[in-house]
Amino acid sequence: MNQRKWRYLLPVVLIALAALSGCSIDQRLNALDPSGSAGEIQLDLINWSIMLMLGVFAIVITIYIYVLIRYRKRKGIERMPEQVHGNTKLEVIWTVIPIIALIVLAFPTVKYTFDLDEKPQGDDVIKVKVIGYQYWWEFQYPDLGITTAQELVIPVNKKVSLELEGKDVLHSFWVPNLGGKTDVVPGRINHMWLDAKKPGEYQGKCAELCGPGHSLMDFKVYAKEQADFDKWVASMKQPPKQAVSEIDKKGEALYKQNCMGCHAGATPQVPGPELNNFALRETIAGMLPNTEANLKKWIKHTEDLKPGTRMPKINYLQEDELDALTHYLMNRKSKTEK
Protein backbone atom coordinates (compact mmCIF):
# COMPACT_ATOMS: atom_id res chain seq x y z
CA MET A 1 0.00 0.00 0.00
CA ASN A 2 2.83 2.28 0.93
CA GLN A 3 4.49 1.70 -2.39
CA ARG A 4 1.23 2.37 -4.12
CA LYS A 5 0.91 5.72 -2.48
CA TRP A 6 4.43 6.54 -3.48
CA ARG A 7 3.57 5.93 -7.07
CA TYR A 8 0.77 8.42 -6.83
CA LEU A 9 3.20 11.00 -5.59
CA LEU A 10 4.20 12.31 -8.97
CA PRO A 11 0.86 13.56 -10.23
CA VAL A 12 0.21 15.03 -6.81
CA VAL A 13 3.48 16.92 -7.01
CA LEU A 14 2.68 18.07 -10.52
CA ILE A 15 -0.76 19.26 -9.54
CA ALA A 16 0.71 21.00 -6.51
CA LEU A 17 3.22 22.74 -8.73
CA ALA A 18 0.46 23.86 -11.02
CA ALA A 19 -1.56 25.07 -8.05
CA LEU A 20 1.41 26.98 -6.69
CA SER A 21 1.76 28.83 -9.94
CA GLY A 22 -1.73 30.14 -9.38
CA CYS A 23 -3.69 27.75 -11.55
CA SER A 24 -6.48 25.54 -10.49
CA ILE A 25 -7.20 22.42 -12.44
CA ASP A 26 -10.65 21.65 -13.71
CA GLN A 27 -11.30 18.49 -11.75
CA ARG A 28 -13.99 17.49 -14.20
CA LEU A 29 -11.35 17.08 -16.87
CA ASN A 30 -8.29 15.73 -15.14
CA ALA A 31 -6.83 12.41 -16.19
CA LEU A 32 -4.37 12.52 -13.30
CA ASP A 33 -7.05 12.49 -10.60
CA PRO A 34 -9.55 9.88 -11.73
CA SER A 35 -12.90 9.21 -10.10
CA GLY A 36 -13.55 5.87 -11.75
CA SER A 37 -11.91 2.43 -11.76
CA ALA A 38 -11.03 2.56 -15.46
CA GLY A 39 -9.30 5.87 -14.96
CA GLU A 40 -7.47 4.49 -11.92
CA ILE A 41 -6.17 1.53 -13.88
CA GLN A 42 -4.94 3.87 -16.57
CA LEU A 43 -3.37 6.25 -14.08
CA ASP A 44 -1.61 3.34 -12.44
CA LEU A 45 0.03 2.43 -15.71
CA ILE A 46 0.80 6.06 -16.48
CA ASN A 47 2.58 6.31 -13.15
CA TRP A 48 4.50 3.07 -13.64
CA SER A 49 5.74 4.22 -17.01
CA ILE A 50 6.58 7.75 -15.89
CA MET A 51 8.65 6.40 -13.00
CA LEU A 52 10.50 3.98 -15.22
CA MET A 53 11.12 6.58 -17.86
CA LEU A 54 12.27 9.18 -15.36
CA GLY A 55 14.76 6.62 -14.09
CA VAL A 56 16.09 6.13 -17.60
CA PHE A 57 16.15 9.86 -18.16
CA ALA A 58 18.08 10.43 -14.94
CA ILE A 59 20.78 7.97 -16.05
CA VAL A 60 21.05 9.47 -19.52
CA ILE A 61 21.10 13.04 -18.33
CA THR A 62 23.72 12.31 -15.66
CA ILE A 63 26.10 10.80 -18.18
CA TYR A 64 25.24 13.58 -20.60
CA ILE A 65 26.02 16.44 -18.23
CA TYR A 66 29.16 14.75 -16.98
CA VAL A 67 30.42 14.22 -20.52
CA LEU A 68 29.61 17.75 -21.63
CA ILE A 69 31.49 19.30 -18.74
CA ARG A 70 34.36 16.87 -18.40
CA TYR A 71 35.29 16.47 -22.04
CA ARG A 72 34.62 19.90 -23.48
CA LYS A 73 37.43 21.40 -25.48
CA ARG A 74 39.60 23.64 -23.33
CA LYS A 75 41.45 26.65 -24.61
CA GLY A 76 45.08 26.12 -25.42
CA ILE A 77 45.07 22.38 -24.92
CA GLU A 78 45.26 20.21 -28.03
CA ARG A 79 44.50 16.67 -27.20
CA MET A 80 44.05 13.67 -29.43
CA PRO A 81 41.33 11.43 -28.00
CA GLU A 82 41.85 7.70 -28.09
CA GLN A 83 39.98 6.22 -31.05
CA VAL A 84 37.90 3.63 -29.18
CA HIS A 85 35.91 1.17 -31.26
CA GLY A 86 33.39 0.23 -28.61
CA ASN A 87 32.99 -1.78 -25.48
CA THR A 88 31.11 -5.03 -25.70
CA LYS A 89 30.43 -5.24 -21.98
CA LEU A 90 28.89 -1.78 -21.86
CA GLU A 91 26.90 -2.39 -25.01
CA VAL A 92 25.47 -5.60 -23.63
CA ILE A 93 24.51 -3.79 -20.42
CA TRP A 94 22.57 -1.08 -22.18
CA THR A 95 20.85 -3.61 -24.34
CA VAL A 96 19.88 -6.09 -21.65
CA ILE A 97 18.78 -3.69 -18.91
CA PRO A 98 16.19 -1.90 -21.07
CA ILE A 99 14.89 -5.26 -22.23
CA ILE A 100 14.35 -6.32 -18.62
CA ALA A 101 12.73 -2.98 -17.77
CA LEU A 102 10.37 -3.29 -20.71
CA ILE A 103 9.44 -6.86 -19.79
CA VAL A 104 8.56 -5.58 -16.33
CA LEU A 105 6.41 -2.91 -17.90
CA ALA A 106 4.84 -5.34 -20.36
CA PHE A 107 3.13 -7.43 -17.69
CA PRO A 108 0.82 -4.79 -16.21
CA THR A 109 0.28 -3.42 -19.71
CA VAL A 110 -1.09 -6.66 -21.07
CA LYS A 111 -3.08 -7.39 -17.93
CA TYR A 112 -4.72 -3.97 -17.91
CA THR A 113 -5.36 -4.11 -21.64
CA PHE A 114 -7.45 -7.22 -21.12
CA ASP A 115 -9.09 -5.88 -17.93
CA LEU A 116 -10.28 -2.78 -19.71
CA ASP A 117 -11.68 -4.81 -22.57
CA GLU A 118 -13.89 -6.99 -20.35
CA LYS A 119 -17.61 -6.59 -20.85
CA PRO A 120 -19.13 -6.17 -17.40
CA GLN A 121 -21.82 -8.75 -16.70
CA GLY A 122 -24.53 -8.92 -14.10
CA ASP A 123 -27.91 -7.45 -13.23
CA ASP A 124 -26.69 -4.21 -11.77
CA VAL A 125 -24.73 -3.25 -14.87
CA ILE A 126 -26.22 -0.21 -16.60
CA LYS A 127 -26.22 -0.61 -20.33
CA VAL A 128 -25.95 2.51 -22.45
CA LYS A 129 -25.80 2.86 -26.16
CA VAL A 130 -23.72 5.85 -27.23
CA ILE A 131 -24.23 7.28 -30.69
CA GLY A 132 -22.00 10.04 -31.99
CA TYR A 133 -23.35 12.55 -34.49
CA GLN A 134 -21.84 15.72 -35.93
CA TYR A 135 -21.61 17.35 -33.28
CA TRP A 136 -23.69 15.91 -30.50
CA TRP A 137 -24.08 12.71 -28.51
CA GLU A 138 -27.10 10.52 -28.05
CA PHE A 139 -27.39 8.19 -25.06
CA GLN A 140 -29.90 5.36 -25.10
CA TYR A 141 -30.67 3.15 -22.09
CA PRO A 142 -32.17 0.09 -23.77
CA ASP A 143 -33.08 -1.62 -20.46
CA LEU A 144 -34.75 1.50 -19.10
CA GLY A 145 -36.31 2.69 -22.34
CA ILE A 146 -34.83 6.16 -22.05
CA THR A 147 -33.17 8.28 -24.70
CA THR A 148 -31.32 11.45 -23.94
CA ALA A 149 -28.67 13.62 -25.50
CA GLN A 150 -25.53 15.49 -24.47
CA GLU A 151 -25.81 14.34 -20.86
CA LEU A 152 -25.08 10.85 -19.64
CA VAL A 153 -26.56 10.19 -16.21
CA ILE A 154 -25.23 7.19 -14.31
CA PRO A 155 -25.52 5.85 -10.77
CA VAL A 156 -22.34 5.84 -8.67
CA ASN A 157 -20.36 2.69 -7.99
CA LYS A 158 -22.05 0.74 -10.73
CA LYS A 159 -20.35 -0.47 -13.84
CA VAL A 160 -21.71 1.16 -16.97
CA SER A 161 -21.33 -0.88 -20.12
CA LEU A 162 -21.16 1.36 -23.15
CA GLU A 163 -21.89 0.29 -26.69
CA LEU A 164 -20.58 2.89 -29.09
CA GLU A 165 -21.89 3.33 -32.58
CA GLY A 166 -21.14 5.88 -35.27
CA LYS A 167 -23.54 7.27 -37.80
CA ASP A 168 -21.69 9.85 -39.86
CA VAL A 169 -17.97 10.38 -39.24
CA LEU A 170 -15.49 9.15 -36.66
CA HIS A 171 -15.78 10.52 -33.15
CA SER A 172 -14.09 9.48 -29.97
CA PHE A 173 -15.82 9.22 -26.61
CA TRP A 174 -13.66 10.55 -23.79
CA VAL A 175 -14.38 11.37 -20.17
CA PRO A 176 -10.87 12.08 -18.85
CA ASN A 177 -11.83 11.82 -15.22
CA LEU A 178 -13.56 8.47 -15.51
CA GLY A 179 -11.43 6.72 -18.10
CA GLY A 180 -9.79 6.76 -21.48
CA LYS A 181 -11.41 6.99 -24.84
CA THR A 182 -12.92 4.68 -27.40
CA ASP A 183 -13.51 5.64 -31.00
CA VAL A 184 -16.97 5.81 -32.42
CA VAL A 185 -16.67 4.29 -35.87
CA PRO A 186 -19.53 4.26 -38.36
CA GLY A 187 -20.27 0.71 -39.37
CA ARG A 188 -18.73 -0.76 -36.22
CA ILE A 189 -19.90 -1.34 -32.70
CA ASN A 190 -17.30 -0.76 -30.00
CA HIS A 191 -17.48 -1.46 -26.30
CA MET A 192 -16.06 0.09 -23.20
CA TRP A 193 -16.98 0.35 -19.56
CA LEU A 194 -16.87 3.08 -16.97
CA ASP A 195 -17.88 3.68 -13.40
CA ALA A 196 -17.88 6.71 -11.16
CA LYS A 197 -16.81 6.34 -7.56
CA LYS A 198 -18.27 9.58 -6.33
CA PRO A 199 -21.26 11.61 -7.39
CA GLY A 200 -20.61 14.71 -9.41
CA GLU A 201 -20.34 16.28 -12.80
CA TYR A 202 -17.68 15.04 -15.19
CA GLN A 203 -16.92 16.53 -18.53
CA GLY A 204 -16.65 14.57 -21.74
CA LYS A 205 -15.04 15.53 -25.03
CA CYS A 206 -14.96 14.29 -28.56
CA ALA A 207 -11.34 13.42 -29.20
CA GLU A 208 -11.32 12.59 -32.90
CA LEU A 209 -11.36 15.35 -35.50
CA CYS A 210 -14.91 15.23 -36.84
CA GLY A 211 -15.31 18.51 -38.69
CA PRO A 212 -15.54 22.24 -38.06
CA GLY A 213 -17.50 21.82 -34.83
CA HIS A 214 -15.20 19.18 -33.35
CA SER A 215 -13.87 21.48 -30.65
CA LEU A 216 -17.36 22.06 -29.28
CA MET A 217 -18.64 18.50 -29.27
CA ASP A 218 -18.66 18.38 -25.49
CA PHE A 219 -20.91 16.39 -23.24
CA LYS A 220 -21.39 15.83 -19.53
CA VAL A 221 -21.55 12.80 -17.34
CA TYR A 222 -23.56 13.13 -14.13
CA ALA A 223 -22.94 10.51 -11.51
CA LYS A 224 -25.81 10.37 -9.03
CA GLU A 225 -26.51 8.39 -5.88
CA GLN A 226 -28.74 5.43 -6.63
CA ALA A 227 -31.85 7.11 -5.19
CA ASP A 228 -31.31 10.27 -7.22
CA PHE A 229 -30.65 8.20 -10.28
CA ASP A 230 -33.91 6.33 -9.83
CA LYS A 231 -35.72 9.60 -9.47
CA TRP A 232 -34.14 10.86 -12.66
CA VAL A 233 -35.18 7.69 -14.49
CA ALA A 234 -38.74 8.08 -13.28
CA SER A 235 -38.99 11.66 -14.42
CA MET A 236 -37.44 10.80 -17.77
CA LYS A 237 -40.05 8.11 -18.30
CA GLN A 238 -42.96 10.39 -17.58
CA PRO A 239 -44.55 11.70 -20.72
CA PRO A 240 -44.16 15.42 -21.25
CA LYS A 241 -46.87 17.72 -19.95
CA GLN A 242 -49.74 18.59 -22.22
CA ALA A 243 -49.64 22.09 -23.53
CA VAL A 244 -52.51 23.85 -21.76
CA SER A 245 -51.68 27.52 -21.59
CA GLU A 246 -52.12 29.73 -24.61
CA ILE A 247 -48.40 30.37 -24.94
CA ASP A 248 -47.53 26.68 -24.73
CA LYS A 249 -50.09 25.76 -27.37
CA LYS A 250 -48.61 28.35 -29.67
CA GLY A 251 -45.17 27.03 -28.85
CA GLU A 252 -46.25 23.47 -29.56
CA ALA A 253 -47.53 24.45 -32.97
CA LEU A 254 -44.27 26.20 -33.77
CA TYR A 255 -42.34 23.20 -32.49
CA LYS A 256 -44.27 20.90 -34.78
CA GLN A 257 -43.68 23.20 -37.70
CA ASN A 258 -40.01 23.95 -37.24
CA CYS A 259 -38.34 21.40 -34.99
CA MET A 260 -40.04 18.04 -35.08
CA GLY A 261 -38.66 16.97 -38.43
CA CYS A 262 -35.19 16.47 -37.10
CA HIS A 263 -35.73 16.43 -33.36
CA ALA A 264 -38.45 13.80 -33.25
CA GLY A 265 -37.21 11.53 -35.96
CA ALA A 266 -39.57 12.47 -38.78
CA THR A 267 -36.65 12.91 -41.19
CA PRO A 268 -34.20 10.21 -40.16
CA GLN A 269 -31.46 11.40 -42.54
CA VAL A 270 -31.06 14.56 -40.44
CA PRO A 271 -31.22 13.35 -36.84
CA GLY A 272 -31.30 15.81 -33.99
CA PRO A 273 -31.27 15.34 -30.22
CA GLU A 274 -34.63 14.42 -28.76
CA LEU A 275 -36.26 17.33 -26.91
CA ASN A 276 -38.98 15.72 -24.75
CA ASN A 277 -36.79 15.96 -21.72
CA PHE A 278 -35.04 19.12 -22.74
CA ALA A 279 -35.94 20.93 -19.54
CA LEU A 280 -34.13 18.30 -17.50
CA ARG A 281 -30.79 19.07 -19.15
CA GLU A 282 -28.08 21.31 -17.81
CA THR A 283 -26.81 22.46 -21.17
CA ILE A 284 -27.92 23.46 -24.62
CA ALA A 285 -26.01 21.82 -27.47
CA GLY A 286 -23.62 20.43 -24.86
CA MET A 287 -22.00 23.81 -24.36
CA LEU A 288 -24.31 26.60 -23.15
CA PRO A 289 -25.95 26.67 -19.71
CA ASN A 290 -29.60 25.82 -20.12
CA THR A 291 -31.45 29.12 -19.68
CA GLU A 292 -34.21 30.56 -21.78
CA ALA A 293 -32.00 33.42 -22.93
CA ASN A 294 -29.31 31.03 -24.08
CA LEU A 295 -31.90 28.88 -25.83
CA LYS A 296 -33.07 31.88 -27.83
CA LYS A 297 -29.49 32.75 -28.64
CA TRP A 298 -28.84 29.20 -29.80
CA ILE A 299 -31.94 28.98 -31.97
CA LYS A 300 -31.07 32.23 -33.70
CA HIS A 301 -27.31 31.77 -34.05
CA THR A 302 -26.67 28.01 -34.23
CA GLU A 303 -23.83 28.03 -36.71
CA ASP A 304 -22.10 31.05 -35.22
CA LEU A 305 -21.96 29.31 -31.87
CA LYS A 306 -21.00 25.87 -33.13
CA PRO A 307 -19.37 25.96 -36.58
CA GLY A 308 -20.64 23.31 -38.94
CA THR A 309 -23.65 22.31 -36.89
CA ARG A 310 -26.42 20.83 -39.02
CA MET A 311 -29.17 22.78 -37.30
CA PRO A 312 -30.02 25.79 -39.46
CA LYS A 313 -30.44 29.22 -37.92
CA ILE A 314 -34.10 29.72 -37.04
CA ASN A 315 -33.96 33.48 -37.34
CA TYR A 316 -37.23 34.05 -39.16
CA LEU A 317 -39.52 33.79 -36.11
CA GLN A 318 -41.16 36.84 -34.61
CA GLU A 319 -40.07 37.78 -31.13
CA ASP A 320 -43.33 36.54 -29.60
CA GLU A 321 -43.17 33.32 -31.58
CA LEU A 322 -39.67 32.68 -30.27
CA ASP A 323 -40.88 33.38 -26.75
CA ALA A 324 -43.67 30.86 -27.14
CA LEU A 325 -41.36 28.24 -28.60
CA THR A 326 -38.73 28.53 -25.88
CA HIS A 327 -41.39 28.66 -23.17
CA TYR A 328 -42.88 25.47 -24.52
CA LEU A 329 -39.50 23.71 -24.69
CA MET A 330 -38.44 24.83 -21.23
CA ASN A 331 -41.69 23.69 -19.63
CA ARG A 332 -42.42 20.32 -21.19
CA LYS A 333 -41.02 18.82 -18.02
CA SER A 334 -40.94 20.71 -14.80
CA LYS A 335 -37.44 21.53 -13.70
CA THR A 336 -38.18 20.53 -10.15
CA GLU A 337 -38.40 16.90 -11.20
CA LYS A 338 -34.68 16.92 -11.50
Binding site: Q42, L43, S49, T113, P176, G180, A207
Partner: peptide, 10 residues
Protein backbone atom coordinates in the same frame (compact mmCIF):
# COMPACT_ATOMS: atom_id res chain seq x y z
CA UNK B 1 0.91 1.17 -23.57
CA UNK B 2 -2.70 0.73 -24.70
CA UNK B 3 -4.47 1.33 -21.37
CA UNK B 4 -2.49 4.50 -20.77
CA UNK B 5 -2.85 5.47 -24.40
CA UNK B 6 -6.63 5.44 -23.99
CA UNK B 7 -6.01 8.64 -22.03
CA UNK B 8 -3.26 10.08 -24.25
CA UNK B 9 -4.69 9.24 -27.66
CA UNK B 10 -5.74 12.27 -29.70
Amino acid sequence: LPPADFQYQD
